[in-house]
Design a binder for these strands. Structure first.
Length: 284
DNA sequence: TTCCAGGTGCATA
DNA sequence: TATGCACATGGA
């Protein structure tokens, strides 16, 4: 992956493996907005402004090192796509979302965001998380001004009534209980465990089942052995991977997909998710 | 009006 | 272990 740093900006000229729309709108992050051909992203307490031109992409940001890591710029995604594109559907999906990259995000932010995401839609999830940050996060007076995602201490002050006010619905109780449990639990200790053990640990928290745990691990821990199976992956699985019957048990769907994609599961999942969600009208 | 959204918790068999 | 239902909320 080619990139360089100029005047405290990240410059990307290899557009075959970086597309802001693909990266931000494939469901892995909720704090971004788009106007004209500019995307603004907030992650943790940092912010980036991505401007796409014909031959290059400029990323102006609060912290260059943070965003080189965040956008996973040291990984060669052309090689990954090549390994994945061995069936017709995977070839289509990797071509459609050619600019996708898996973001390296903050553990706590993923933990909270994906509890909110359960049985919810992306627009409402985004609204809840943005309001949460505006009401409880710290204001940062850089790059036009923005609110950081709340720290654990700030999150501890969000009551069940506050969460309902933010639109979290029945997940309000789960959020209060699970955030409270984090006071005596260091999320970084999960790095010492294998994927199965990490899922087992995370699912002891209220509001975290297998799917949400997979998302937290994939997007917060860069664990590519995870394959979150949601309603969209269930559809794409039954459309392309299962010919006879419709399979509804998501644990079994996950097992079959992980057996197929192994250590590239996380990447495969994002290409398939983006492809199916953006193309839904072509498959109903 | 009913269905659906990046599902989970809980009771029951 | 497996199945089925309730759960907030707003857009289509």
């Amino acid at each position: 992956m080619n990139y360089k740093i100029e005047n405290n900006k990240i410059i990307i000229t290899n557009l075959s493996q970086f597309n802001a729309q693909h990266i931000l709108e494939c469901g892995q992050i909720f704090r971004f907005k788009n106007y004209d051909n500019v995307y603004e992203v907030i992650s943790g307490d940092e912010k980036a402004v991505i401007t796409s031109e014909e031959n290059k992409i400029e990323i102006e940001c609060t912290n260059v090192e943070y965003f080189v890591n965040f956008f996973d710029l040291k990984t060669n995604y052309n090689y990954i796509k090549q390994q994945l594109a061995i069936t017709p559907i995977m070839k289509k999906a990797t071509e459609y979302g050619y600019g996708i990259r898996i973001l390296r995000q903050v553990e706590l932010e993923m933990f909270v965001s994906f509890i909110i995401s359960a049985n919810n839609n992306i627009k409402r999830i985004q609204g809840t998380i943005n309001k949460l940050s505006q009401n409880f996060g710290t204001y940062v007076n850089k790059l036009g001004g923005y609110y950081a995602f709340p720290t654990l201490e700030q999150l501890s002050k969000v009551s069940q009534a506050d969460w309902k006010e933010l639109g979290a619905g029945y997940r309000a109780g789960y959020l209060v209980e699970s955030i409270s449990k984090l006071k005596d639990y260091n999320l970084t200790k999960l790095y010492n465990l294998n994927t199965k053990e990490k899922i087992k640990e995370l699912t002891t928290f209220k509001g975290i089942g297998n799917k949400v745990a997979d998302c937290i691990l994939l997007f917060g821990y860069y664990d590519m052995n995870c394959f979150p199976v949601d309603t969209w992956i269930e559809k794409v699985y039954n459309d392309f991977f299962e010919t006879n019957k419709k399979l509804k048990n998501r644990d079994i769907i996950r097992k079959k997909l992980v057996a197929k994609f192994d250590k590239l599961s996380g990447y495969a999942q994002q290409y398939l998710f983006y492809f199916r969600r953006e193309n839904w009208q072509n498959f109903v």
